[in-house]
């Protein structure tokens, strides 16, 4: 029986290895194409490896960085993601603490609204949201975090509140009796305990904001500001021949930082996903 199991395990390992290689293939294919010369990238040769004649080195990468406003877009994407995630983590966790600790119709009403907003598809609000954002001048990369805070609050409050219900009330009460005001209690006592949930929420929200395409497209002025997903879609949709070489390099340049971040923070990311799903 033991032996049979071992042979079976061996077979599964081999099958999974093949499957993982295939799984990686689409990204590897883009990587190889990003190393080809512009003229030798075509629809029917995308699966071919670069050869000695078609190998272009890092030329496409240099072109992408220099000519396509790539660095600018990268900057906007970073600004938007960082400000939004910080605002969501700080303000939503404070709001969740209030909701879980002060019982009443206001708290349960808010909680219901936040949960409801998670199910509503974005198309329901996309037009009116972009108009509201224009009126309130929230249409720049420096202000758009307010929109993301409002739209990301659902998931964040849900996850924070879920965790806070399990924190014993006594610790907080003790700190209040010792003379802390609610603000001090929050920052000195509650926030440090929230760290694991902060990491999970931060990762989920960062993934969402970083990859989001439709919201920034509708809210930001596309002529002035393009995030990375907007840039890629914009150049594909523009008239005339798309420069395939720099496009491939552009894709790789957006994928590589994600892969590196993932490999470094893998443990937290996978935990965060599992936690987010259980709460959701």
């Amino acid at each position: 029986m033991k032996k049979e199991n071992k042979a079976l395990d061996m077979m599964w390992t081999v099958i999974l290895t093949i499957a993982s290689v295939l799984y990686m293939y689409p990204i590897v294919m883009i990587f190889f194409n990003s190393l080809k010369e512009e003229t030798s990238i075509s629809t029917n040769s995308a699966v071919q490896l670069p050869t000695a004649e078609t190998f272009a080195g890092l030329e496409n990468y240099l072109n992408a960085i220099n000519s396509k406003g790539f660095l600018q877009s990268l900057g906007y994407s970073i600004v938007i993601t960082v400000t939004s995630v910080i605002a969501i983590l700080l303000l939503c966790s404070m709001c969740s603490w209030y909701i879980t600790r002060v019982k009443g119709i206001v708290s349960s009403g808010l909680y219901f609204l936040f949960a409801f907003s998670m199910v509503v598809p974005f198309q329901m609000v996309m037009f009116t949201l972009s108009q509201t954002a224009d009126q309130l001048k929230l249409n720049t990369p420096w202000n758009i975090w307010i929109i993301y805070l409002g739209f990301g609050a659902g998931l964040a409050v849900f996850m924070f509140a879920g965790f806070m219900k399990s924190i014993p009330l006594e610790v907080e009460e003790a700190s209040m009796i010792d003379g802390c005001n609610p603000l001090q209690t929050y920052f000195l006592i509650v926030m440090p305990m929230l760290k694991p949930t902060m990491v999970s929420v931060g990762i989920l929200e960062a993934m969402w904001v970083w990859n989001d395409y439709l919201l920034p497209t509708l809210v930001l002025d596309i002529k002035k500001y393009k995030t990375i997903p907007m840039l890629i879609q914009y150049f594909r949709g523009s008239y005339g021949r798309v420069e395939m070489g720099p496009m491939m390099a552009c894709i790789m340049l957006t994928v590589i930082p994600i892969v590196i971040t993932y490999l470094l923070g893998q443990k937290h990311i996978i935990k965060g996903v599992a936690a987010g799903a259980v709460k959701g």
Binding site: F114, L138, G150, A153
Partner: peptide, 14 residues
């Protein structure tokens, strides 16, 4: 302090 910032953004954004 605790509720208004998130709630205001939620009103505007949702």
């Amino acid at each position: 302090l605790f509720v208004i910032p998130t709630f205001a953004a939620f009103v505007i954004g949702f």
